[in-house]
């Protein structure tokens, strides 16, 4: 039995969620989704994913805040988070790292790049 990895996708855009799903569907991952940071944190606690792809600008709770919440809670503190951001600017990326993200990719998502980072994060 292959150890199937679970990935949590957090984004308020259906377009991005669908695109991420399509890219990740090429590999054997279990995918769960959340539509904003708050739901993302809840899902992370409940589902204990192996990796989280986190959007930045979202309603209710943005990606930075969600990341900080994940790092504060013991059960989610070590889950790798890849920030998926429209803003590749210095300040935004730096804030992402300060919030506890492990790596980042910029939108529009490039399939090759995302898969390479996801696999690397999952040790595959």
């Amino acid at each position: 039995m292959v150890d199937r990895k679970k990935i949590l996708l957090v984004d308020d855009s259906s377009t991005v969620l669908l695109m991420e799903r399509m890219i990740l569907s090429k590999s054997e991952y279990d995918v769960v989704t959340a539509k904003d940071g708050l739901e993302g944190v809840e899902k992370a606690r409940a589902e204990r994913p192996d990796l989280i792809l986190m959007d930045v600008v979202m309603p209710r709770m943005d990606g930075f805040e969600a990341c900080r919440k994940l790092r504060e809670a013991e059960e989610t503190a070590t889950i790798p988070v890849i920030m998926v951001t429209t803003r590749g600017e210095l300040a935004s990326v730096e804030t992402g790292y300060a919030s506890g993200c492990n790596d980042y990719v910029t939108k529009p998502i490039n399939g090759l790049e995302l898969l390479a980072k996801v696999r690397s994060c999952l040790g595959q």
């Binding site: 790596d103 390479a116 980072k117 690397s120 994060c121």
Partner: peptide, 14 residues
């Protein structure tokens, strides 16, 4: 860098 540096496997992008 590698997120899982401590448990590195055969493939490590960084």
């Amino acid at each position: 860098a590698s997120v899982i540096g401590a448990f590195k496997t055969s493939r490590n992008l960084g």
